[in-house]
Amino acid sequence: MARRKKIYEGKAKILYEGPEPGTLVQYFKDDATAFNAEKKDVIEGKGVLNNRLSEYFMLGLNNIGVPTHFLRRINMREQLIRSCEIIPLEVIVRNFAAGSISKRLGIEEGTQLPRPIIEFSYKDDSLGDPLVPEEYITAFGWASQQDLDDIVSIAIRVNDYLSGVMYGVGIKLIDFKIEIGRIYDGDFMRLVVADEISPDSCRLWDIKTGEKLDKDVFRRDLGNLTDAYTEVARRLGVMPSNVTPATKPTLIN
């Protein structure tokens, strides 16, 4: 697809004008960032893997009735998505303690939480994406109380789906974050899962060994990030089982 007008460039993706009104082309970069872009690198093949994995998860959600912005994959690095108004929140769902919640509350990483915990952070890198309570969200008009109720319902369904899919291939879903967008059709508005779902936005541990298969490999210098993401793709059937992980992974349609 010929390049069109660039709409937005983030840390891991670029959005271009789509071929039809109400659409965008989402391009996945190889850039890896952590700690609000304080740590950066280019990991060859990462964008290809995240494009294919996000397609897998978004299609799965669409198939069970959870609406997403995803329309179709265009090529190895691009997908066609619906244009939507992004709510300025990251919706974080935690099943086990890890990362910031372990530091904040002194809970050992890997501890199963009493129930899935949903947190919200305000999307602003310059502020470090601070956690915000629901009171702030409604007071500042980022989302209504009805929106929040619907977002929580969506987050729970996404968690159920992802947890089951991952458990089936021997992976424990520690936590994940999603973004939610608004799509308007005349006077009708609906909420959809937007952005991406990939090992960039999830914590994934091997059930038996505890090996990390997510961006913590990059954050904590635990090994080769492409190998970790390739292993997730292989287990999910996104890659053939006889393919040896490489810097330029071979993927199947």
Rank of each mutant, 00 (worst) to 15 (best):
G47D: 10
L53Y: 13
R52C: 00
L53Q: 08
V25K: 14
E44A: 08
G65K: 14
E20Y: 13
K46V: 02
G10V: 06
R52M: 02
Y16G: 05
V42C: 04
E17K: 15
T23D: 04
R52E: 11
D30T: 01
D41G: 06
L24H: 11
I43Y: 04
A37M: 09
K40H: 05
G10I: 03
A32K: 07
K6L: 12
N51V: 03
G10N: 01
G65V: 14
G10L: 04
M58I: 11
G47C: 05
F57C: 01
K29N: 09
G18F: 08
G47H: 05
E44I: 12
E17D: 14
E38S: 06
Y16T: 07
G10F: 08
N50I: 07
Y8D: 01
M58Q: 13
T33C: 00
A12C: 04
A37P: 01
A12H: 04
V42A: 08
L49T: 05
S54A: 02
E9N: 05
G22P: 07
L53C: 00
N36P: 05
A34E: 10
G22C: 02
K5A: 06
N36T: 08
F28E: 08
T23I: 13
E38C: 00
P21A: 11
L15Y: 15
K39C: 00
D31T: 14
I43F: 07
N36L: 00
I43W: 04
Y56V: 02
E17F: 03
L53I: 15
N51L: 05
K5S: 09
E9W: 09
P19A: 06
G22K: 10
E55F: 00
G60I: 11
I43C: 11
F35G: 01
E55L: 00
A12L: 04
G18L: 09
K11R: 14
K6G: 03
M58R: 12
Y16Q: 12
R52I: 10
L49Y: 12
F35V: 02
V42L: 05
L49D: 08
K13G: 03
V42M: 00
E17P: 02
I7G: 01
A37G: 00
K11M: 07
D31Q: 07
V42E: 06
Q26T: 04
D30A: 00
G47F: 03
L24N: 13
N36F: 10
L15K: 12
L53K: 09
K6E: 15
G18H: 13
F35C: 04
K29L: 07
Y27T: 14
G22Y: 02
L61K: 08
L59F: 00
R52S: 04
N63M: 13
N63Y: 13
N50M: 10
T23G: 04
A32W: 09
N63W: 04
K6P: 07
I64R: 15
S54Y: 12
L53P: 01
Y8L: 10
V66K: 13
K13V: 06
T33P: 07
A34C: 06
E55I: 00
D30I: 03
G47N: 12
G65A: 11
K29R: 14
S54I: 07
Y16P: 06
Y27Q: 13
